[in-house]
């Protein structure tokens, strides 16, 4: 992103946003509620038009991509949710193969195989015939990640993937994201948990007042003052030698 500005008629949301993200990294976006994280993601996904500046994906301007071509580059993973219909886990993941289908084409055997591989990679193959609505929130999030893997893109955009999850599932999802990043995926996700940033992220990007205030390696660029300022609560950081990482505590 280069010098990207975006706002609605009544207010400015993002002002002069510039950053670059590379493959093989887990990039976390931190910021208060309403600061523009979701807007930033919508811009990246091509859902919002009328921005100033330039957004490039793999060296090509976002505006030059058609929906289908962009869907071969970036996959979107929403928060786990309850769809209107009772799709099976396999049905949900199978939808990820759509960018490789023609207008009147239906998924075939090779696509189902791709889905099985994606489900296996996140450890959910045994749940493929289960009703998506009946599995746990953590499993739903994993299934949505599997769908992104089946989509065959190398960039995954995740909107607060751990926000509806319990402690254990949150950690499992973050570990899976870290594993995928190490396999070469670029993962851009928003989070409200600074500890996840210290534990799993390769890079952090802090949004404040529509601008990027901090960007870099979490352990080096995030400190107590910044976290206290973002969330407006006293925050302390401790170094845990056992885990060799900073531990964030809010007072």
């Amino acid at each position: 992103m280069r010098e990207v500005r975006f706002g609605y008629t009544d207010r400015k949301i993002l002002d002069s946003i510039s950053f670059q993200a590379e493959q093989g990294k887990l990039l976390c976006v931190l910021g208060r509620n309403g600061v523009g994280k979701t807007t930033l993601f919508q811009l990246l996904l091509g859902s919002l038009k009328g921005y100033e500046g330039r957004i490039e994906v793999n060296g090509k301007s976002l505006e030059e991509y058609e929906e289908k071509e962009l869907a071969k580059q970036i996959a979107y993973i929403p928060q786990s949710y309850h769809p209107a219909y009772n799709y099976t886990v396999q049905d949900m993941v199978l939808m990820g193969v759509t960018p490789s289908l023609g207008m009147f084409e239906m998924p075939g055997k090779k696509h189902v195989q791709r889905v099985e591989q994606a489900l296996e990679s996140v450890g959910l193959l045994h749940l493929r015939h289960q009703n998506f609505c009946h599995i746990s929130s953590g499993e739903k999030q994993m299934a949505l990640i599997a769908r992104a893997i089946a989509q065959n893109t190398r960039i995954l955009v995740m909107d607060e993937p751990s926000s509806n999850l319990d402690f254990g599932n949150g950690v499992r999802v973050m570990k899976l994201c870290q594993k995928l990043a190490h396999q070469g995926y670029l993962i851009i996700q928003s989070t409200h948990n600074p500890q996840h940033v210290f534990s799993y992220a390769d890079e952090v990007l802090v949004l404040e007042d529509g601008k990027i205030s901090v960007q870099g390696e979490p352990a080096k660029c995030l400190d107590e003052e910044i976290l206290s300022r973002i969330y407006q609560i006293p925050t302390r950081l401790f170094y845990c030698s056992e885990f060799q990482q900073k531990i964030c505590v809010a007072l």
Binding site: Q42, L45, G46, S47, E67, K68, E69, L70, A71, K72, I74, A75, Y76, P78, P83, A84, Y85, Y87, D91, M95, G96, T98, P99, L101, M103, F104, E105, M106, P107, Q151
Partner: peptide, 21 residues
């Protein structure tokens, strides 16, 4: 085109992210 109804039933943002106009 019935396969595409599945995607539209998930909402606009998801359908678009999977290449649907």
């Amino acid at each position: 085109m019935r396969w595409r109804i599945n995607l539209l039933s998930l909402g606009d943002a998801e359908a678009r992210s999977m290449g649907i106009q």
